[in-house]
Design a binder for these strands. Structure first.
Length: 454
RNA sequence: GUGAUUGUAGCUCAGUCGGUUAGAGCGCCGGAUUGUGGUUCCGGAGGUCGCGGGUUCGAGCCCCGUCUUUCACCCCA
């Protein structure tokens, strides 16, 4: 006998945790549906050719690969083995576990292009896998809840993402959050204006760390990566953005980046998005324009979003952005999309840390029926039926055991009411209803009991 | 992938300098109480000290390897 264990970075979820997780899923699903998104699901595994090359070199490293079925080693030569894992992998693994929900969605859109009505709004709530080293707020298997729109470049979609994020976190009682917004075109414009056109990728990776490692270390990293002192001096205005209002920040950006058409376009896009949000009537907006926000995924081309819960040391709980050509990789160019992803597991961690789960989340059994002997069941079973028909979550203790044991069971499951049925109750038809919280016990008729429990 | 860190009863953790039979609290089971729980009292079960090797007369404790936990970096939800 060996002790069973779980693979690194994976977890079981017991009933207590599932109540809370389902609360998060239900809350997000409801919002997605209110905003007109339709659910789809895609397989856990995709062909590796679908997944590789979409997330950068780092991402490819983090893909879980699935060994081919059958004799995966058949046809492998000494030469293959000697040529290293990178060359060998495609020969022994042609499938992998999905890394996110966006790329499988792009694949879905391309495969169903003829039957989809554009713009297509879909949501998807499924696990994804990454071969990362686990640490705080980071798991190897975790759930994402994605909502994306493809087939339109309307900025209303960006605005609706802003609205859904506000709605979601407020419904989850996470009031204190920041929605950071930037635009890849602004990042490209910055690279242009400081004299390093086309370098926005490297630039972004460095300045994204600003609030974590500080200005000097960001500059050090850029120097290491070949940025000249001249460009670094030109970058100076980037470090002067304080906690201004979104419109003020955009004005500052306009002044600084006026020489770049690309940047001006990015700024205009964000302005229009903010205007639409205002017209909709969002109150107490948590939007913050952050020109240092970069985000990793290489396919973003327009707006980018990231949500951080304040007061907890857990990374971003939500992220997304616009991608102009994701389906291009699958032979369908020119289709623009934008989406958002909620990280359920991190949201859970945040809510747990801040104690934000409502006490009565997904209440379980409402009443336990406790028959003292076999005869009592003739009264208990019809009552059980009646309770369930009236939509009262009810169960009967299955074994004939000591009353103590049955009441212990009710306590362990946090069942608030117990109906006791013995020979006395069978004869009179009057039932004993016990409130397990207060300890009070009442003699009631079946009708009175139903009234109290409904 | 890099650098740390953790592992002893179901859970949280003690365990001295390497020395006899590895302990506590909580939980669990039984009884006090055969129709009444959450309080109290009494009793009981439960351990391959993560796993494998090494040093030693002797290892929970020292050494090596490995797995696992947690954390930071990289990157990310």
């Amino acid at each position: 006998m060996q002790k069973p264990t779980l693979p690194k970075g994976t977890r079981d979820f017991g009933p207590e945790q599932m109540r809370k997780r389902l609360f998060i899923f239900d809350t997000i699903r409801q919002i997605f549906q209110q905003f007109g998104f339709q659910p789809i699901e895609t397989p856990s595994m995709e062909n590796l050719s679908t997944l590789t090359g979409k997330y950068g070199d780092e991402g490819d490293q983090l893909l879980f690969k699935i060994l081919n079925s059958g004799d995966f080693a058949a046809g492998i030569t000494e030469l293959d083995l000697a040529s290293g894992s990178k060359k060998l992998t495609p020969k022994i693994a042609e499938k992998g576990l999905r890394y996110d929900l966006t790329v499988p969605f792009a694949r879905y859109v391309v495969m169903n292009r003829n039957s989809l009505t554009l713009p297509f709004k879909r949501y998807q709530m499924q696990p994804v896998w990454r071969a990362d080293r686990p640490q705080k707020g980071r798991y190897r298997e975790f759930y994402q809840c994605d909502a994306d729109v493809v087939g339109t470049d309307s900025l209303l979609c960006e605005a609706e993402i802003v609205l859904m994020i506000h709605e979601a976190f407020r419904n989850l009682a996470i009031q204190n959050f920041t929605l950071k917004v930037n635009n890849r075109k602004i990042l490209a414009g910055i690279a242009e204006v400081i004299g390093a056109p086309g370098q926005e990728g490297t630039l972004s990776v460095a300045i994204d760390k600003l609030d974590k490692i500080g200005k000097e270390k960001v500059l050090d990293e850029l120097r290491e990566r070949g940025f000249s002192e001249e460009t670094l001096v030109s970058l100076e205005p980037l470090f002067l953005f304080g906690s201004a209002t979104p419109y003020q920040t955009l004005d500052q950006l306009k002044n600084w980046l006026s020489a770049s058409d690309t940047a001006r376009q990015g700024i205009t896009e964000l302005e229009e998005m903010l205007l639409l949000v205002d017209q909709y009537g969002l109150s107490d907006s948590r939007v913050e324009i952050d020109p240092t926000l970069a985000r990793g995924l290489s396919y973003y081309t327009g707006a980018i979003f990231e949500v951080k819960a304040n007061g907890v040391s857990i990374g971003s709980v939500s992220g997304g952005g616009r991608y102009d050509n994701l389906t291009g990789a699958f032979g369908m160019p020119g289709l623009s999309g934008v989406g958002i992803s909620f990280g359920v597991d991190r949201i859970y961690d945040v809510m747990e840390e801040l104690n934000l789960f409502p006490a009565d989340t997904g209440q379980g059994t409402h009443v336990l029926i406790v028959p003292f002997d076999k005869e009592a069941r003739s009264v208990a079973l019809p009552l059980l039926n009646q309770l369930r028909t009236a939509a009262v979550a009810a169960e009967m203790y299955p074994d004939l055991s000591k009353v103590k044991k049955m009441l212990d069971y009710a306590n362990a499951k946090n069942i608030p009411f117990v109906v006791l049925i013995g020979s006395e109750e069978v004869q009179t038809g009057i039932l004993s209803l016990k409130n397990m919280v207060t300890g009070e016990q009442f003699k009631v008729t079946t009708e009175e009991l139903m009234d109290r429990l409904r």
